[in-house]
Amino acid sequence: MPERVTVTVNGARVDVACGSTVAVAMILAGQPCRASVNGESRGPLCAMGICFECCVAINGVPHRRSCQVFCENGMEVRTDG
């Protein structure tokens, strides 16, 4: 099992420890997860699938809770709609 995996966040490569969630990749990428209804930047809050603040598009599927998804090599994460 490789120790690191690489995903892209809005096209930029992010390298994380194997077993990391996408929410962690977002923090390491220095990117907020979503823009709120009024355009504020938001990131993970509860990290346990309750608050939906960490929702991102993963491999083209929008509104995925990034704290509940493990990073996989080649995964494409987008926050820009």
């Binding site: 994380v16 990391s20 390491l28 709120s36 930047s41 938001r42 809050l45 509860c46 990290a47 704290c67």
Partner: peptide
């Protein structure tokens, strides 16, 4: 409280366990 990097207490612990 809505700023990024404000987490739940258990929330930050979970993030760290998940690789942060």
């Amino acid at each position: 409280w809505t700023l990024p990097n404000v987490f739940g207490a258990g929330g930050l612990q979970a993030m760290v366990k998940c690789g942060l």
